[in-house]
Design a binder for these strands. Structure first.
Lengths: 158, 158
DNA sequence: TATGAAACACGTTGCGT
DNA sequence: ACGCAACGTGTTTCATA
């Protein structure tokens, strides 16, 4: 992936609805050339999708928290992500190095809803939890600074 | 905000490029009615923007980490978010309850780049850092389950 | 991989209800 | 607040280089 693709990715990361016409103007290519490139980036999975960025306060989910989890039985098979996937309040699940095994990012309506969610997490995955409540979010969803590092050839599908 | 708006928000959260035509079909409204509602949701800040979801591995940022920071001098004014905003590797900054003051989510190209970033964070904001490296991400960017809770009247601009 | 043009679909606006 | 219809713009495909 080279210069123009990186520029397209950056532009779309900032405005996922930018038109092909505008992308063409910004890159100096024709509309059909950028169209081709965007479709290729989507097909290769570099662009994985598009999403509206939602104000969680405005939709009744004003409470964000990070929940670190640790298995009660360290010998049991670790399938926590699948066991927790049904809980819609969980926005993200990261496997991490360190004392705990996963960090979950969750969004709920209230402290009581968080309490309820934690019980569901513990019950669903047989884990203990440690919760860090978010007080405010100065910024979030900042677009990546796509520099020069390319995807390796072996990552590229036929 | 009621039923149809919540449905629109959910659909756009899943596919930020969905056409007004498709939104109209899904909601049972006319294209212009949906158009009106989307513009209003944008204007009110319920929909804060649109973004392409990027595969960080494919753009040369395969290393994700959470960096918790704590001021060296607890008496100094806390302006860490502004002091750190210039670092493009920082995707998000959350003020949190607990022992530390902020949790940063960062994306870098390599362990060396992370080491360098941590030095920059410490120097820029006069903080100590505690870093949790992400090993893998089972899921991320899941759309919120927009239930029934409305935005309060006083949140609504004229 | 690029371009330009043609065919088509969509976004956008104004007006009537 | 919604629907309809007209208009302009954006998307998509194709022929060509």
């Amino acid at each position: 992936m080279e210069e123009i693709d990186r520029r397209i990715v950056t532009l779309l990361a900032h405005d996922g609805r930018m038109s092909f016409t505008d992308l063409a103007r910004e890159t100096g290519l024709s509309v059909s050339a950028v169209h081709q490139r965007v479709r290729r980036l989507e097909k290769r999975g570099v662009v994985r999708g598009y999403a509206a960025i939602i104000d969680h306060d405005a939709v009744g989910l004003p409470l964000t928290a990070f929940v670190s989890i640790k298995p009660i039985d360290p010998a049991a098979p670790d399938d926590a992500p699948e066991r927790l996937a049904h809980l819609a309040a969980i926005e993200a699940c990261h496997s991490v190095a360190g004392d705990e095994s996963y960090i979950l990012k969750v969004r709920v309506a209230s402290p009581v809803a968080l309490e309820d969610l934690l019980q569901q997490i513990r019950a669903s995955a047989n884990v203990s939890t440690r919760t860090t409540v978010v007080l405010s979010t100065p910024y979030e969803h900042r677009a990546p600074h796509v520099a020069s590092e390319p995807a390796s050839d072996q990552d590229r599908p036929a």
